[in-house]
Amino acid sequence: MCSYCGCRSIGIIGRFSTEHDELINVTGLLRRAVTDGRTNEIVELVDDVARLLAPHTDAEEAGLFTVLRREEEFSEHIDTLCGEHVDLDDLLARIRTGESHLVDRFDRELRSHIQREENGLFPASLTTLGGDEWDEVDALTAASVPTSPVAP
């Protein structure tokens, strides 16, 4: 995860980064359950990942992505990230219904997605958005429902 530019000092970016860390940790538990053949735990762990993922992606899209999308240079990248949110949800649903062989693909795609946010979009937002825009990001994010179980 990114730690070089200071973007985690922005409250909402710090929250999203913390949520990324938790998503990676819970996905690791899911991967180990699949690898170990603990099928009785897989659905529960998929649900744990989903409980973190859905509110996280909803909040990103409602707040940060909405404000950054106004900048033409970001719109295509944000569209790609939103498409990846849908793809991750679809993969997770397929794992839940028994396609556990997809867990490694889910993990790879999740990590790749997070890397693009943490090392690309988040640092760029730090230099692009001003105070009023960050206030708007915070307000839009706070209005998104449901909130992440990791959020303060």
Rank of each mutant, 00 (worst) to 15 (best):
I13F: 10
D107H: 14
E41R: 14
G63N: 11
A93D: 15
V137G: 04
A124R: 07
M1W: 11
R51Y: 05
I78S: 04
T128S: 08
E84C: 00
N40I: 15
V86C: 05
D132E: 15
E133S: 02
I78Y: 03
E73V: 13
E84Q: 09
I10L: 04
R94N: 08
V34G: 13
G11A: 13
L53Y: 08
D135E: 13
G63H: 10
R8Y: 15
I95T: 13
L140S: 05
M1F: 12
E76I: 12
F122N: 08
Q115C: 08
T80S: 10
E72G: 00
S17W: 00
L110W: 06
A124I: 02
S100H: 14
E71N: 10
S125L: 00
R31P: 08
D89M: 03
L88G: 01
F65R: 00
S148C: 11
V34R: 08
N40Q: 15
V46S: 03
S144E: 15
L88S: 00
L92V: 09
D132Q: 11
N40C: 11
I10S: 01
V43C: 10
D79V: 13
V34F: 08
G83T: 07
L102G: 09
L81K: 03
D79K: 12
M1C: 12
G11F: 09
D21C: 03
T39K: 13
R111Y: 07
G130D: 13
T80F: 11
D132S: 14
R108Y: 04
V86L: 07
C5I: 06
E19A: 03
I13C: 06
G37D: 10
L68C: 05
S17R: 00
T66N: 12
T141Y: 03
L30T: 08
F74A: 00
E84N: 04
E109Y: 01
L81S: 12
T141C: 01
D107G: 07
R15C: 10
G14H: 05
S112R: 08
D107M: 06
S112Q: 09
Q115F: 10
G14R: 01
E84S: 02
R70G: 15
V86R: 10
I114L: 05
G130H: 06
L81Y: 04
C7S: 14
I114P: 09
G6C: 06
L126V: 12
L64Y: 13
A50I: 13
L23P: 07
E76C: 04
D107A: 14
T27C: 00
D47R: 14
T147S: 14
P146G: 05
N25W: 01
S144H: 14
G120E: 04
G98R: 08
W134I: 02
E72C: 00
A139C: 11
H56A: 04
S148D: 13
S75W: 03
D107E: 15
S144Q: 14
C2Q: 15
E118N: 06
L121Q: 03
G83Q: 03
P123M: 01
L53E: 12
S112T: 15
E118G: 01
Y4P: 05
D104R: 09
I13G: 10
V145P: 05
G37I: 10
S17M: 01
R32D: 12
D104T: 14
P152A: 07
Q115V: 11
V26G: 06
R70Y: 12
E76L: 08
C82L: 03
D89L: 03
E99M: 07
R111L: 04
